[in-house]
Simulated assay, not measured.
Amino acid sequence: MSRERLLEHVDRMQEAAQQAFDLTEGMSQEQFLHDIRTQLAVTMSLVLVGEAAARISAGDPGFIQDHQEIPWTRIKGMRNLIVHDYYRAELPVIWQTVRTDLPALVSQLENVRHWRVQGE
């Protein structure tokens, strides 16, 4: 995979993760559990994060090995659950992922992007 394409996928992951977080800003878990529009928007954002991760994994397995701090398997697993078995997805788990895990992921992706831009 070209460097430009790899960075594009990293950017897409970061943008979709930030969007999912932003969509829930100012909401309580209870509000989220009763807001179908936000649930659908957030789950679509998580699908986009997972899809970009899957493309990186398929196109540049070495990159995945170099950046094991990112939970690639869990990201792709959540994407697969949402896409293939949406009704089994547990909304409290999605809420926790968005509010707790995504800010760290956005930061990790920012670090990875700068690492790659520097060519190290």
Rank of each mutant, 00 (worst) to 15 (best):
Y86D: 04
D66E: 13
Q14N: 06
E110A: 14
V112I: 13
N80A: 12
H84L: 11
G119Y: 02
T24W: 00
D35Q: 08
R99S: 04
V83N: 12
L33F: 02
Q19E: 11
I64M: 03
L81H: 10
Q96L: 10
A16C: 00
D66N: 12
R12S: 06
Y87S: 14
V42Y: 01
H67V: 03
E8M: 07
F63E: 12
F32Q: 06
R12D: 03
D101V: 01
M78A: 07
E8D: 15
W95K: 12
M13R: 00
A53P: 01
L40V: 07
Q19D: 10
Q65F: 08
A41K: 05
S107V: 02
L23R: 08
W95T: 09
T100K: 14
M44T: 08
M1Y: 10
K76F: 00
L46R: 07
M44I: 04
Q39G: 03
V83H: 08
V117E: 15
Q29G: 12
Q96R: 15
M1Q: 11
E15C: 00
Q65Y: 08
V83I: 15
S45Y: 01
I56H: 03
Q96F: 10
S107W: 07
L6H: 07
A58P: 00
D22N: 15
R3W: 04
V112F: 04
F21Q: 09
A17R: 03
L7Y: 05
M13W: 09
E25S: 12
V106W: 05
V117N: 11
Q14M: 14
V117Q: 15
W72D: 04
G50Y: 06
P92L: 01
L7W: 08
H34K: 13
